[in-house]
């Protein structure tokens, strides 16, 4: 009797695992189809494009992608008049008509191999940036891998120009001034610690020295 029960439980567990695997595969397939929209700006492999002002997104945490897509959809992010990239993402995020679509595309983008974008920002001093980065490391981790518990995304696979632009936006309030976006407001406070553009470049230069292993 016990043996039969064990076999039945094992079969049920295997069936559940099998169904789950199929569901994930279906999500990724759906996500790949939806990702076609994203490739127009973010590139075929999600490696980003300076021309389109669209950052590398391949391999970012699924939780982070989901949260940002939801913020873009609701207008909590991407509705400041001076946020050029955000104003593009706000309507594009609304192409995802359901929560399932949002999760599918986030899962697909997270499954992509992170790129190692070529540095284009000049004039940063990574040694000075290392000192300044100690504050960032609290949430983003010592090597910029991101910490989900702090809602802090990975930084090391993102383009340096995007990081610099994002810090500048935080400093002037283009990002992080919407009270409905608590994490961005928190980040704005952190960005304010960087005194000037040189300090921002230094931090970005330091981030670019991190290993790109996932």
């Amino acid at each position: 009797m016990i043996r039969r029960l064990v076999v039945a439980c094992a079969c049920l567990a295997l069936a559940t695992l099998g169904t789950g695997g199929a569901a994930i595969a279906a999500d990724l397939a759906r996500g790949e189809v939806l990702f076609h929209y994203c490739t127009q700006c973010h590139g075929d492999a999600g490696g980003g494009s300076l021309l389109a002002r669209a950052p590398a997104i391949a391999g970012l945490g699924e939780w982070y992608l989901q949260s940002q897509l939801r913020k873009f959809q609701s207008g909590d992010r991407g509705t400041h008049p001076d946020d050029v990239g955000g104003l593009r993402m706000h309507p594009m995020s609304r192409l995802l008509r359901s929560e399932e679509d949002l999760q599918a595309v986030a899962a697909y983008v997270a499954s992509l191999t992170p790129s190692r974008p070529e540095p284009v920002v000049e004039g940063g001093d990574s040694a000075r940036g290392a000192v300044l980065y100690t504050l960032c490391a609290t949430c983003h981790g010592p090597e910029g891998a991101g910490i989900q518990a702090f809602n802090a995304p990975a930084l090391r696979t993102t383009n340096d120009w995007y990081l610099l632009a994002a810090l500048a936006k935080y400093k002037v309030g283009v990002r992080g001034s919407n009270p409905r976006n608590g994490t961005a407001m928190l980040m704005r406070g952190m960005a304010m610690q960087l005194s000037d553009e040189q300090a921002m470049k230094d931090v970005v230069a330091h981030i670019m020295t991190f290993a790109d292993s996932k």
Binding site: T79, P81, V84, L87, R88, H90, P91, M92
Partner: peptide
Amino acid sequence: VSQQWAWT
């Protein structure tokens, strides 16, 4: 002000 893809 028009821009891709919003009106200000």
